[in-house]
Amino acid sequence: MRDVNDRGTDWFRGVYARHFPDVVRYGLRRLDGMAAAEELAQEVFLVAWRRRWEVPARTLPWLYGVARRLLANHWRAQRAVPPSGELTETVGLDRHDGIVRLMDVRTALGRLSDDDQEILRLVGWEQLSLREAALVVGCGSATAKVRLHRARRRLAELLRERPSPATSVDGQLGGVR
């Protein structure tokens, strides 16, 4: 493990190069598009530079934790936005079986609570261990284990239900964050 004395710009460039793609992917899975994900990643690394004395050896889960808190701030800031009053048009959608299948998983994910979704994403997409995922979410390992167990079971139940064929233009499709 490198000496903490060593944490200058060279050290930081190394951390950034190693972990920037993974932090962007974290953002892509929870935000709308690459631009938003890259912006989030830049904010995460700015925090990492400012707190570079605190960055632990297991860096990536710590970076995910920073990203998660920044996202929470982002959602909180959205609450300050007054209602737009716009009406959304409902549009008919094509349903190819392959796309329906992917959307089934994402729709099913969306039916879980936010914390359950996050545990499943961290373990399933970010490939974290349960203990690391617990650190990111800020709960104990025992709580994370219950959430994962419950989320996994619930997701499996939802995927066994076949969506009824849409007879109206209101589809069930929707990307899920």
Binding site: F12, R13, Y16, A17, F20, P21, V24, R25, L28, R29, M34, E38, A41, Q42, F45, R101, L102, V105, R106, L109, L120, G124, W125, L159, G175
Partner: peptide
């Protein structure tokens, strides 16, 4: 199934701007 539904699957991420 989760892997297939991953929004970041197969996405190429650039080097960013440190």
């Amino acid at each position: 199934l989760l892997a297939a539904a991953d929004p970041a699957r197969g996405v190429q991420v650039g080097p960013g701007d440190v």
